[in-house]
């Protein structure tokens, strides 16, 4: 998607821009409901709620990823791409060999943020009745009469168990790629 947005081909640019603007500006819960009920209505599916949640989360997060990558690509000096073209690399080679690897360095941190947001966004899947962490917590409270505060504290810890290692992993990758300067 990011490659579309920086490509010299206008239709690809439009496609990239439309995709990004559509999916990053629509609320995640609306996208999920649309995907599940809209597709069923259109005669496609129905897919399992769990699979639907994964597809929608991927589409949604990829829109943000594309924008992050684009920002990273823009931080790579224009001269780098010019030099690549000057030795005869094609546009895809220029992006893949020269621009992306350098862009990646600047966006490792923001991508980590997106990844963590993705984990937490999974809580939205409850609107299409996927039994994820938040939904389970609610069920415990509603049906079993467990007191809410310990349950939500437990849920918070469970999210942390997923997100903290992601954060550490990002920090590790960031140190690793930044050595070669």
């Amino acid at each position: 998607m990011a490659a579309c947005r920086v490509s010299p081909v206008p239709p690809l640019q439009w496609f990239g821009a439309t995709y990004v603007e559509l999916f990053r500006n629509a609320p995640l819960s609306v996208l999920m409901l649309l995907f599940v009920f809209g597709l069923t209505k259109a005669g496609v599916g129905p897919y399992s709620f769990f699979a639907s949640a994964i597809v929608v989360l991927s589409i949604y997060t990829s829109a943000f990823l594309a924008e992050t990558f684009r920002a990273g690509i823009n931080t790579v000096a224009a001269g780098q791409a010019e030099a690549a073209r000057a030795i005869g690399l094609t546009f895809p080679q220029t992006l893949g060999i020269v621009v992306f690897p350098q862009a990646l360095r600047t966006v490792v941190g923001p991508i980590g943020n997106l990844f963590i947001a993705l984990i937490k966004n999974s809580s939205i899947a409850s609107v299409i009745s996927v039994l994820e962490l938040s939904k389970r917590s609610n069920l415990l409270i509603d049906q079993q009469g467990v007191s809410p505060i310990p349950v939500f504290l437990g849920a918070a810890v469970a999210y942390l168990i997923l997100t903290l290692p992601s954060g550490f992993l990002v920090g590790y990758v960031e140190r690793k790629v930044s050595i070669k300067r």
Partner: peptide, 13 residues
């Protein structure tokens, strides 16, 4: 066609 730039533009990575 070889090209040499004012700002060198060596691949930094």
């Amino acid at each position: 066609v070889g090209m040499v730039f004012q700002s060198f533009n060596l691949f930094a990575h």
